Computed example of a mutant assay.
Amino acid sequence: MMTNLFSIFDPSTNLFNISFNWLSTFLGLLFIPYVYWLIPNRHFIFWNFILNKLYNEFKTLLGPKNHQGSTFIFISLFSFILFNNFLGLFPYIFTSTSHLTLSLSISLPLWLSFMFFGWINNYQHMFAHMIPQGTPTILMPFMVLIETISNIIRPGTLAVRLTANMIAGHLLMILLSSTGPNFPTYLIFILIIVQILLMILESAVAVIQSYVIAILSTLYSSEVN
């Protein structure tokens, strides 16, 4: 019996005083090695097609000054978040991406590395980026303050965007499913259809949020070059 609406997001479940919930984060690794010993199938060809499209898009966003191989960082980020978002849709699997612990651990080091690289190597560009072209002189101090604040909160907004979207869909499905025992029989079928539609929506959200995080990280990286 569920004692708390947020109990499914509780990472403290343990066995022998070891928190096994976070091990679900690495379950996605089990789906990767099969490509090394199985002949290419439709699943592999489809996944390879997606990665090629992502590579071309990230390469375009990073521009001509991008470092060789930097696109693979964001492709790996997309794949990691996508695997964890989808695994969280299965019953009895802990949704690690619904915690700020994981999402901040992803966004904060990325943002810090971009900032260190930008201020050490392209400090003139970083200073110029704080004041958009054509800004009146009287507004320059305010623009510097606004741009600084918006830059500082970027890792937080990335983390909260991912966490909030994953929590919202899961909570909605839990709230609807918990009302099932009180419904008459003819409404149960409607509830099942609604839950199926919500599951499809959550699957789309899992893909979209992975793509959004990867694209925003790519854009933040392109700004420091």
Rank of each mutant, 00 (worst) to 15 (best):
L110Q: 05
M173D: 03
M140R: 14
M166H: 06
L175F: 10
H43K: 04
N41M: 02
F114D: 11
H99W: 09
I153D: 09
M166S: 04
F6W: 15
G63V: 02
D10P: 10
L171S: 08
T13N: 10
I149M: 13
D10W: 05
L158Q: 07
P40L: 11
I192D: 12
P11H: 07
I81N: 00
I208V: 10
L201T: 05
T163N: 13
L198R: 03
L112F: 15
M130W: 08
G118Y: 05
P132Y: 10
H129S: 15
S203E: 03
Q68A: 00
L219E: 02
T179C: 05
G156N: 10
S19C: 00
F58R: 02
D10F: 07
I200S: 05
T148R: 04
W22K: 03
P136A: 10
F49H: 12
L201N: 06
I138P: 02
F31Q: 01
N56T: 08
N4A: 00
T135P: 13
T95I: 01
S79I: 03
L100P: 01
I120M: 14
N85I: 03
G169C: 13
L110F: 09
L158R: 07
N14D: 13
L145Q: 13
L29M: 13
R42M: 15
A204G: 00
I8F: 12
I149C: 09
S210G: 13
F26Y: 15
M1R: 12
I39L: 11
E57F: 13
N182D: 02
S177H: 14
K53Q: 09
P136M: 09
F189H: 12
S7F: 07
A214T: 02
S107K: 06
R161K: 12
S150P: 00
F31N: 05
N4E: 14
L38D: 06
T157G: 00
I213V: 14
M130K: 13
G28Y: 12
L38W: 07
F116G: 05
F20C: 03
Y55R: 10
F16R: 11
T101N: 09
L51P: 00
G169P: 05
D10H: 05
W111L: 11
F78H: 03
G28D: 10
I215K: 09
I81L: 08
L201G: 02
F78E: 05
